[in-house]
Design a protein around this nucleic acid. Structure first.
Lengths: 88, 88, 88, 88
DNA sequence: TCGCCTGATAGTTGCC
DNA sequence: GGCAACTATCAGGCGA
């Protein structure tokens, strides 16, 4: 059965509730992160620096991926295709 | 002994790693949420509206009414009238 | 003469610079907008509501009604009733 | 005269209109940017690569600023303050 | 041409 | 209370 004009209430409700449950879990973790920062601060660390460190580490790995993507992009632009590593 | 200028490297490392682990978990959940929306869309639901529903449910109704009152005030000041949601 | 593998470097450079110049201008205007909001706030206005007003004015009213109808449908399916915007 | 409960309609209207005018200008520039990309594509360039180039150039300059900020941060953490260049 | 997906923008929340 | 980071939303571009 299809949707607009006769919505399947049960299915809709299930969807909304799954989302709400996941968002709640996400919020819990966000709170945990905040706690870690608070604890760090209580131990005398400068949280601003820690945040920067965390950000830079993430950025580094993102950058590495970007380099690969860029290489890939150029290769395609030159009409060359990298042999796929996974295969049938 | 205390921190800046002689930092307890192990403790600092532990902090950073705890944060990174938590952020990873948080990202996993965020991805799960995206999946639920994708599934909903695949089943013919309008995800934009579902997002609105989720947001409205989260929003405290007292706060909601307060905002609406102020919005109403501003709209009137501009000579605009909000289209009534209820209708004959 | 054609492009990939012998790129017209000058033309490419010109393109990139035009884009960068336009993006700079765009950023300048974005900053101006921020200034207007800041000024409004300094004059005692609630910027959150002003943003809402601006958004509503931009939104085509037909589209708005359509969204509201669908939202209404979903809310009913969940057994929730939208608080009426008009009131005694 | 103050705001909530007697909003200065003229001032409010002026604010909203200034914002709308600026947003319109911003949109015009955004459209110009789109045009440049379209023209580039018509001339045989790969717009995806151009977008990447533009993004990387922006990122580079942002990164340079970040390095400076980070240095500054560490200096402060070590209790060293860079002699302010401007002073009374 | 349509639908998906990524990148840009706007809004919210937390820190200083 | 202002500023900055982060998140969520939206729109435009790309590929099928």
């Amino acid at each position: 059965m299809s949707q607009p004009g006769g919505v399947a209430a049960d299915q809709l409700r299930a969807i909304v509730e799954r989302i709400e449950k996941l968002e709640e879990e996400k919020q819990t973790i966000a709170d945990d992160i905040k706690d870690v920062y608070a604890e760090a601060k209580a131990n005398g660390y400068d949280t601003k620096i820690i945040r920067t460190v965390v950000r830079l580490r993430k950025q580094d790995s993102a950058e590495r991926q970007e380099q690969e993507a860029l290489l890939d992009l150029y290769m395609h632009a030159l009409g060359m295709v990298l042999p796929d590593t996974s295969e049938t």
